[in-house]
Write a protein that binds this DNA or RNA. Structure first.
Lengths: 272, 272
DNA sequence: CTTTAAATTTCGTATTACGAAACATTATTT
DNA sequence: AAATAATGTTTCGTAATACGAAATTTAAAG
């Protein structure tokens, strides 16, 4: 008896979701994405829940610090507990701690924005972002630590995808699709697979305005002590500064070098 | 009919806490404070909950990204959603954004650690921490963004307490007490009140190893556009470097100055 | 001072989450 | 490699929990 469809899949809705957890998550998302906080009325009408219910959940959340109530406006805002937890997880990702000095150096040297990401649920999650103090010239990238991006359309994502098995890639494509973000985005599965094998061979990836018009990036992988590609780093910037030539002549070399340095700091001994 | 004891008090346990929220909070705290993550067994035995229940809550939390499961060890860890939320709240505290450059400059100039805090539930919460790149000489402060401290025993706390009304101060003392952290901690309510009125008059506070042996700090307040003391900043360091003389001659002036600069950036027009 | 709107509390009820135990999977020992 | 132990996952009948309509209180606006 074999069951070829039995893929344990953490991203599909569990059969027995706890209702309260779902509602709490919805409330926190909602409140988090409002700049001025929200009233109970707002929340209850947006989510279609009775005011009483929302109030009960909010007071419980407030008691544990996940939500706080503005003294003046009476609006509910994210609580400071989330600051604490956000920093806790940072310290759990010791990857990030180790990489930090190298990334700073890279940002200084190249005068562009440096990102560090990991792959989670087939999406790219930014775990570090360093902007060169000078040189960014008022142009700031909209990215933010904790934010997510499709993997197929950015350099860091393509680097990490390039180490997946063919089977995993199929699951990825099936689950996430290959949404076209710009005219340059690779949307054909076959093309993507060819591209990824190239990326893997050459050890770096370029995002030539595939994710956002006007932004170009180069990325390289980071390996842990077991040689597993656990993370990727990139240099990103506006296309008029980050030209194809600059990438080939300078930036490519620098990301790869920094990637290798961080890998070594993690105990990576090199291939074979 | 008057009821003098009717103080709306957000920190006492609400009558109708949602059980699931409490359990979720316990689980997240537990998992967050473990460096290697925890198994279901660990969590259920620590909290005294049945495995099935813990499992159900964990899968729900994982679905929404608050918890993730390590692929290898199968242990549960904090999820990356918390990174995202931690960064969201940071951007909601635009106070912090505005202050950042000033604080960096202060840290550079003084070569010591600079903190920024707000008061929440009568406790000090660190919302920013900047370490001077050089000069810390291997000595790092254990503080962490999001962490909390009693208010009566640190400079930033005393600065903020100094603006409370007498009534609020009594509530604070009743609720939190004045725990003795070191031999220097002020533990007498009367002494504290006298001290605070002095702090308020002089516009800064010193923590002379009152919170931690070997650590001395100076702090100054930050006012918003309405003239309300919304935050406080401090310079902290080992007592052998941060001498009383250095504070009086140099540091005191610098924190006050930086505090005022930030206040002005927030729209503060000065007193009267 | 009156009116309106939102926030908070109450309370009987049905749904939801509970948790004991069965079952499955993974790790450990012999 | 087989057996055993230990942990993880699912099931399901039940009761406690959270629900939510409505009443009450509080705050804001006219």
């Amino acid at each position: 008896m074999f069951r070829n469809t039995k893929f344990k899949d953490k991203s599909t809705r569990p059969s027995n979701l706890v209702q309260t957890v779902e509602r709490v998550s919805q409330i926190i998302d909602l409140v988090g994405n409002s700049s001025q906080g929200m009233s109970i009325k707002d929340i209850s009408s947006t989510l279609g829940l009775p005011k009483g219910t929302v109030h009960r959940l909010l007071t419980s959340l407030a008691y544990f610090g996940y939500i706080r109530q503005d003294a003046k406006t009476k609006n509910y805002l994210l609580g400071l507990k989330l600051l604490e937890l956000g920093n806790l997880i940072t310290s759990q990702l010791d990857l990030r701690k180790i990489a930090e000095p190298y990334l700073k150096e890279l940002a200084e040297k190249t005068k562009e924005t440096v990102h560090m990401v990991i792959l989670d649920q087939y999406e790219v999650v930014y775990i570090e972002k360093i902007e060169s103090e000078i040189g960014t010239g008022g142009l700031k990238m909209a990215s933010r630590v904790g934010a997510r991006n499709p993997a197929h359309s950015c350099a860091v994502g393509k680097v990490l995808l390039s180490y997946l098995t063919d089977e995993e890639l199929d699951t990825f494509i099936e689950k996430k699709g290959l949404p076209q973000r710009t005219p340059n985005t690779i949307v054909s599965p076959i093309q993507l697979k060819e591209h990824l094998s190239m990326v893997r061979n050459q050890g770096y990836a370029i995002d030539d305005e595939e994710n956002e018009k006007g932004i170009r990036c180069v990325a390289a992988p980071i390996f842990d002590d077991k040689g597993r590609p656990v993370s990727a780093i990139s240099i990103s910037g506006p296309s008029f500064r980050v030209t194809k030539k600059l990438i080939q002549d300078v930036l490519k070399k620098e990301v790869i070098k920094t990637g290798l340095e961080i890998s070594k700091a993690l105990g990576f001994k090199g291939v074979t």
